[in-house]
Amino acid sequence: MSKRILAAAATAAAAMLLTAVPATADAAPVSAVATSPVLGDVIPSGFGDVVFYGVPVRIPQLPETTFGIMAGARDAAGGLTNLVATNETAGSDKAPGFHAVASGMEVDGHDVPTFGYYYGPAAKITGRIWGTTGVAHQARWSEDPNVVVFWFDPGVADPENLQAFDAAGAELPAGNTGVGHG
């Protein structure tokens, strides 16, 4: 599986599509994510004004992808600015496992951490960061409680060896654990 990352600069007139997919893959229209409404509740990251939320994805070349996760910024008045979106680009967006993991980056002065989602009963998500195991922050998406949005602290290296565990501590299916770079 591969993933596509969309960065939308707050002051730019248009968003820029960044991709971690092979050059032969069909490019998704920027407007498919950049102008979409928010799906479900906005999830605060706990780091400044960065938040996460679901967005609809309607791309004919991706019939099994219906949503993506957006990292955005919330202003003092409660408004949202899209920063980086990521979505599944191969197969079902609801297959068990990790999906659409986006590398941490700075977008328009906002430090967006590595984030993505896990589809399934993940109670704990971990990754190897700088040789030690780090635990991701996470929240269930209000639109579909099987979707667990997760993120690591901003400014840390991309996690390797992503793993998800259920409430009893049993390891769950991996899915796509690769981190896309935009």
Rank of each mutant, 00 (worst) to 15 (best):
S92R: 06
T86W: 08
V101G: 01
T81F: 02
T66F: 00
G91N: 07
G79V: 00
M105K: 15
Y118P: 01
H110V: 15
A85H: 10
D111G: 04
V101Q: 04
T65V: 06
Y119V: 08
F115N: 15
T65R: 05
I69E: 10
G72M: 11
D111I: 06
V84L: 04
T114P: 06
V107E: 03
H110N: 13
R74Q: 15
G68E: 03
D108A: 14
T81L: 09
P121N: 09
A95I: 01
G109D: 08
A73C: 15
D108C: 08
P113T: 15
I69A: 01
H99N: 11
S103E: 14
G97Q: 05
H99C: 05
M105F: 13
L80T: 04
Q61D: 09
T114C: 14
M105L: 09
G72L: 11
G104F: 13
A85S: 14
H99D: 14
F115Y: 15
A90V: 13
H99G: 04
F98N: 02
T65Q: 00
H99E: 15
A122N: 05
Y117D: 03
P60R: 04
P96R: 03
A122P: 09
I59F: 09
G109L: 06
Y119N: 08
P60E: 13
V84S: 02
A102E: 13
E106F: 13
F98H: 03
T114F: 07
N82P: 10
E88H: 08
Y117E: 03
E64G: 01
P113W: 11
G104M: 04
K94E: 02
G91A: 01
S103F: 01
V101F: 02
I59A: 10
D93H: 07
A85V: 05
A90C: 06
T81G: 12
R74C: 12
N82V: 13
G68W: 07
G120S: 12
Y118I: 07
A102K: 04
E88Q: 13
G72I: 03
V112Y: 11
G68M: 10
V84T: 13
P60D: 14
A102C: 07
V107K: 07
Y119W: 15
P63R: 04
K94M: 09
Q61E: 10
E64K: 11
A102W: 12
T89R: 02
L80N: 14
F115L: 02
A95H: 00
A85K: 08
A100H: 10
G97I: 04
A102P: 09
A100F: 11
V107Q: 05
A90Q: 12
I69Y: 10
Q61R: 11
A122C: 10
G116E: 14
F98V: 03
T114S: 06
H110I: 12
A122D: 07
Y117V: 02
G78N: 04
I69L: 06
A77M: 10
A100Q: 10
E64Y: 09
I69P: 07
A73G: 06
A95P: 03
P121D: 12
